[in-house]
């Protein structure tokens, strides 16, 4: 029996301890497991199990009362052939696009302006954040009054009348409904992003601004050459979060228009809701599950592509 030569300097082999339940407990395995258990239970019950059920339901016909029937990919086929599917995708893309063009820069502009003021910065930040703390239902009811959807001509049309502009139909017009929802959404959600940008702005090295000033840079040049490059990681993150959020827009079209007029504000999430709950005999839960999975798959692929494409920009 020979012993294999040990390489010089190599540590002597550890004696293997046989693993038994007792050693597992002794080494703290049980306490780790017990600490992990609540998390596993909560996630399992409220996240993973519903996801598994969703995948199963997308392959079933069920009214949630009688036993479900397996029907393969028929639900996916139904969704793809539904004329409302493309309308919903187009409307969602329009909402996301408008929100990106108009809603995305506004919080940045507001936060830069707030960070520039010397006095009452806290008050301006609070004012910018105020709409976020208003419950969406209350906010929508308020804006319905602004748009004149609760009777009367509406606040906005009254103001437009002062400058000689004819009353607009806002959310009751097929062409103005989506922009009207984007307008509300920007007002309601900008505050959260403003706070994020304000926090990020405090992290920008003041010396960079001083150096830029010495080089003769004005406000615009400082913004373009110092602020934006310094914020680019956070800007890219807020952009992907906004795209993911607007792709799932639901509250605004549901509370303002229920997808109308004439499906002009029917979004993908609203279509999912309609499949699940729009039919009083509950015959399309499977289609709702199928479209949900399609949306998840799209957003996952989009996020991956986005993160890969912007990887180079986001590293400083």
């Amino acid at each position: 029996m020979s012993t294999a030569p040990q390489p010089a300097g190599a540590a002597p082999k550890r004696k293997r301890v046989r693993r038994t339940p007792a050693t597992w407990v002794k080494r703290g395995g049980l306490s780790k497991f017990l600490f992990l258990l609540p998390l596993l239970l909560v996630f399992g019950l409220f996240s993973w199990y519903p996801i598994v059920r969703l995948v199963m339901m997308s392959l079933q016909f069920t009214n949630l009362v009688q036993p479900a029937k397996w029907i393969g990919l028929a639900n996916f086929s139904e969704v793809i052939h539904d004329p409302l599917f493309l309308i919903a995708v187009k409307n969602t893309a329009e909402f996301a696009g408008l929100a990106l063009v108009f809603g995305y820069p506004i919080p940045l502009i507001i936060s830069v302006l707030i960070s520039e003021v010397r006095k009452r910065r806290g008050l301006y930040s609070a004012l910018a954040y105020l709409p976020v703390v208003i419950p969406p239902v209350v906010g929508v009811l308020l804006w319905k009054t602004f748009y004149g959807d609760s009777g009367g001509i509406g606040v906005f049309n009254t103001i437009l009348g002062w400058v000689g502009i004819h009353p607009q139909e806002w959310i009751q017009s097929t062409s103005q409904a989506i922009p009207s929802l984007v307008l509300y959404s920007t007002w309601a959600n900008a505050g959260s992003t403003v706070i994020i940008y304000l926090a990020a702005l405090t992290g920008v090295n003041r010396e960079l601004y001083e150096a830029a000033s010495v080089d003769g840079a004005g406000l615009w040049k400082k913004l373009w050459h110092v602020t934006l490059p310094q914020l680019r990681t956070i800007l890219l993150i807020t952009m992907i979060l906004q795209i993911i959020g607007t792709a799932q827009v639901f509250i605004e079209p549901w509370l303002f228009t229920q997808g109308g007029p004439a499906n002009a504000t029917l979004t993908v999430l609203l279509l999912i809701y309609d499949y699940a709950f729009g039919n009083s005999i509950g015959a399309a839960y499977g289609e709702a599950a199928a479209l949900s999975l399609m949306l998840v798959a799209f957003l996952a692929v989009f996020s991956l592509i986005y993160l890969r494409a912007t990887r180079a920009w986001s590293t400083s």
């Binding site: 009214n63 009362v65 699940a276 709950f277 039919n279 009083s280 005999i281 509950g282």
Partner: peptide
């Protein structure tokens, strides 16, 4: 209401 009935039933 049509949108709530089936869900409430299930």
């Amino acid at each position: 209401t049509a949108p709530t009935f089936a869900a409430e039933l299930a």
